[in-house]
Design a binder for these strands. Structure first.
Lengths: 181, 181
DNA sequence: GCCCACCTATATAGGGTTGATATATGCAGG
DNA sequence: CCTGCATATATCAACCCTATATAGGTGGGC
């Protein structure tokens, strides 16, 4: 699933500029399971335009660089569906948080406490945002399903952290004492 | 959290060759939240050796290339702890599965059904493996905590998929009928 | 028995991605 | 008034991943 396909996916939901596509990956509904940066989005859009999978429309703007608005073509929609039918690559997660916590024994308990605090706050905030945006508008079945899964997983993570933090802190507190003795 | 730090983390748990470090990221306890490939591990180990953070010991082997066994130095341990004290980058997840499911409306229901089947099977298998490796040996508090969190999250994901798949399939089945009419 | 596929083991080239930076301007808050 | 942030596109170096090269051992199917 390369950046070209991801851009097609965003554009299938409506026309957008490169900047807006970047925002979709930074804040939008895709942000929880895929990211892309300017350095990959702009070349991808150029390649997609060259292949006829997207169309460009330049919009002049006052005192700002011209906005290049991209829209998906019928050929582009076919390419997107073809990509969606290929075997998905295995999920990959990168979490510095979990990596650091694997070495909790070597860290000051205050540091571990603070990390877990921050993470719980982050999950709760993300959950509030995800749960809020559903009431007013009817969203299609696919996005609704994915959103529900995100909520279920984040809630499980936050609940686990809250339920088990004291036990972890007690255990690394003990071993810190043992080292001191 | 670059590959050099990840290698130090693996080596802090015992000496290993580049090949074994790669296996730790492919199958070991880190595999669920960080990955690294040969193309990044070997240069990272060379750089770490040049900086005096790891030591190399060459072990001749019958009918195979010499094994270079790396071990972390006291200086390396300090560097690891220093890295663990820096602010962790935000978690990032890449899931082609969720990306594809966001476009479930455009896909044949049979395809969606198959994807969810495969994913549930994958989660259940991962859970079985993760739950199995705890009974016999006593693992430190940090890894135990991280392992528990992984189990909680995977279980929530699998449960969600099982509980909501019928609803999704019913909804995209309906819209498929509407398109046909 | 034989062949194919996979495992051990290191290394590199090529291509894709990230993160930082450059450019230019408006707007809000201290 | 000035700093920081948002809009908007674009590029570059550093980093990382995928695929490949090399080379022999091991296990399963036919």
């Amino acid at each position: 699933m390369d950046v070209k396909t991801l851009c097609l996916g965003v554009l299938s939901r409506g026309e957008a500029s490169g900047y807006e596509i970047k925002k979709a990956f930074a804040e939008g509904p895709f942000s929880h399971f895929h990211q892309a940066s300017f350095g990959s989005i702009y070349p991808a859009l150029n390649a997609l335009a060259a292949e006829g999978l997207v169309e460009v429309r330049e919009q002049a703007q006052d005192k700002r660089p011209d906005k290049k608005i991209y829209s998906i073509t019928p050929k582009g929609r076919n390419a997107l569906v073809a990509a969606l039918m290929t075997e998905p690559a295995p999920d990959a997660m990168r979490s510095d948080f979990l990596f650091i916590l694997s070495f909790a024994q070597y860290l000051p308990p205050a540091r571990v406490d603070q990390l877990i605090d921050q993470r719980i706050a982050w999950y709760r905030e993300a959950l509030a945002r995800m749960e809020a945006c559903a009431c007013n508008e009817t969203i299609p079945a696919g996005p609704a399903f994915v959103r529900g899964m995100g909520i279920a997983v984040y809630r499980a993570a936050a609940d686990y952290l809250e339920a088990n933090r004291e036990k972890l802190l007690a255990e690394i507190g003990e071993s810190a004492l043992m080292v001191a003795e």
